[in-house]
Write a protein that binds this DNA or RNA. Sequence first.
DNA 1: TAGATTGTTAATCGATTAACAATC
DNA 2: TAGATTGTTAATCGATTAACAATC
Lengths: 219, 219
Amino acid sequence: MTAKASSDSAREIPEATVARLPVYLRALVTLSDAGTETCSSEELATAAGVNSAKLRKDLSYLGSYGTRGVGYDVDYLRYQIAREIGVTQDWPVVIVGIGNLGHALANYSGFRSRGFRVVALLDADPERHQEVVAGVDVRPFDDLEQIVAEQGVAIGVIATPAVAAQDVANRMVAAGIRSILNFAPVVLAVPDDVDVRKVDLSIELQILAYHEQRKANAS
Amino acid sequence: MTAKASSDSAREIPEATVARLPVYLRALVTLSDAGTETCSSEELATAAGVNSAKLRKDLSYLGSYGTRGVGYDVDYLRYQIAREIGVTQDWPVVIVGIGNLGHALANYSGFRSRGFRVVALLDADPERHQEVVAGVDVRPFDDLEQIVAEQGVAIGVIATPAVAAQDVANRMVAAGIRSILNFAPVVLAVPDDVDVRKVDLSIELQILAYHEQRKANAS
DNA sequence: TAGATTGTTAATCGATTAACAATC
DNA sequence: TAGATTGTTAATCGATTAACAATC
């Protein structure tokens, strides 16, 4: 299959750059909301917390969306980055494990406003199937395959205890999900074509502790 | 001030390695709990989801804790890594912003079991000051300075809405906190000697969406 | 034309990896 | 001694950064 209109977007974008695009997008949304129409790489870089050389290098992978001597049109660049990331469309998401964290995720407004739609909340515990969280019914985990098929779910979020996570991942993969955001503190084994990103609260704290300890020893 | 007993631990450990040490530590805890006494770099690497060359290189920054031809003593290596990270001691933590996410964090058992102790939950909203979450009273945000001083808090967690986050960070820094874990979707401005780590759920989802989009286009 | 700022080049830095000598 | 596995070396790869030519 050949590429459509923007055939140049087939270029390979480095992982480190991909990880920063959402940060730039958010900074642009903030600028746009504040009524700013144009910004320089220096201004945008400051808002995003990086240096301007890195920002310009990153943007250069997407194309040439600025004007020399002038800067970037905020709304135009915002659209181009959103398109590159893929958040001009809506992504149906399913969350599995509706404990404390699952509740927080289901209620997180940042998903909806950034191109993600929570279409289902699943939990293995029948006790929870009475609940409605953030306007969505909690349903049995066994409904996974049906929901994924019906709603075209491409992204799954795992917020279960560690012991259940691998099983949930297996079922997600079998159901056709190829992108997983994992909050359970385990290393998931998945096929090569499945993307897993991990958020681990205690690991983040441990990294802070390491540096904190060094500061304490240095003083 | 000169270093104590283990003067060799003054070596510089690369950031990428520091970020993986907690992963190795967790794998070792799992192995230990399963009764495993010895493991090779190959086994530990598999459990941690990295290749063995990287694991050995990482461990080499800490010292020489294995035995050629044999492997690593699980409990010994576990202790050495825990000591290097700094989680052989207890770190008092304060959480600010007790909404959905703050609740989830306060209840997260992984903190306690990994060397962190939530000593206070703070919220600016007086409505919440009645609450007890995970056995800890929710107190006014204005108590921050006092609590930090009394309890020797070194790590602060920000789980407030985006608009409040910078103010909270400023107050934390003024109170003497030098390590911050930020869940609010904003780039915090802090002095150079303050460490900020960021967890942003929607950014993680956006990175997945980018790759998902590419998979969809490739098919 | 003069000033400003992008997009790109090239140098530097840090992280990963394979291979293997050291050594249990 | 023979087999196994670490710890380290050196090559490779990818990311960052400063500098500046291109160009509005």
